[in-house]
């Protein structure tokens, strides 16, 4: 039930955004495809950043454990906040890429 509500909300606001964009802001509907492709590129970048964050974090923790004997949980490298921060990294990096002449 909750899944359906969440999906319905996203579909409804997406349709509203398309309507407002096309009619209210005069945006071209045909440009949506390119926008979708860029969104997929962003998602890919975010995935890469997340994988890098988790991998580097785990390696650093394992190295510290081996070198110092300190007790550091590997789960630290999988904190869910990393997903949000990786998305932020991807957003900034994609904007930076787009600024290249």
């Amino acid at each position: 039930m909750r899944s359906l509500v969440v999906l319905a909300l996203v579909v409804a606001t997406s349709l509203a955004a398309v309507a407002i964009g096309a009619r209210g802001l005069g945006l071209d509907r045909r440009a949506l495809r390119g926008a979708g492709a860029r969104a997929l590129e962003w998602a890919g970048l975010a995935t890469l950043f997340l994988a890098a964050n988790v991998a580097v974090g785990a390696l650093v923790i394992l190295a510290l454990r081996a070198l110092t004997g300190a007790s550091i949980s590997v789960y630290l490298a999988s904190d869910r906040v990393l997903v949000l921060l990786s998305a932020l990294q991807a957003t900034i990096f994609q904007a930076w890429r787009a600024s290249r002449p």
Partner: peptide, 26 residues
């Protein structure tokens, strides 16, 4: 953004493969 504006990779020619990979991964 124009109607036919390609995504980042396609617009930049040589970077198309990287952009395609990112889209698949995304």
């Amino acid at each position: 953004m124009g109607a036919a504006e390609p995504s980042l990779g396609r617009r930049r020619g040589g970077r198309g493969a990287a952009a395609h990979g990112l889209r698949v991964l995304g």
